[in-house]
Amino acid sequence: MDTIATTKLSGEEIFDLMKKFITEVIGEEFVEEMDITPESSFTKDLEMDSIEIVSFSEKIKAHFGEQIDFTGWLSSMDLDQLINLNLGMIISYIEECQS
């Protein structure tokens, strides 16, 4: 279990953390073939399906705890928005929650 973060992370640190979570969810062998950037979309570029996004969400919740309501944020999106969700949007959301 990840410990709940208390220090404020920079955008770059959040990006590295997200990459770590994605690697844990989909496996290193797939991540090696990908060029993960803040523009990478979850469904199209990273080819993550919804149960993998559930796992990813769980990791974010475990890491940040009450600081952010990640599931609540996702639930405000419609299907098009979820399909187009990219890493940069999550980084911005976490940065906002930290400020």
């Binding site: 399906d49 149960i51 559930v54």
Partner: peptide, 13 residues
């Protein structure tokens, strides 16, 4: 399928 069919929109509401 799996539980994600509910997880993102239906369950939170």
């Amino acid at each position: 399928s799996n539980l994600s069919v509910y997880y993102f929109n239906i369950a939170p509401l």
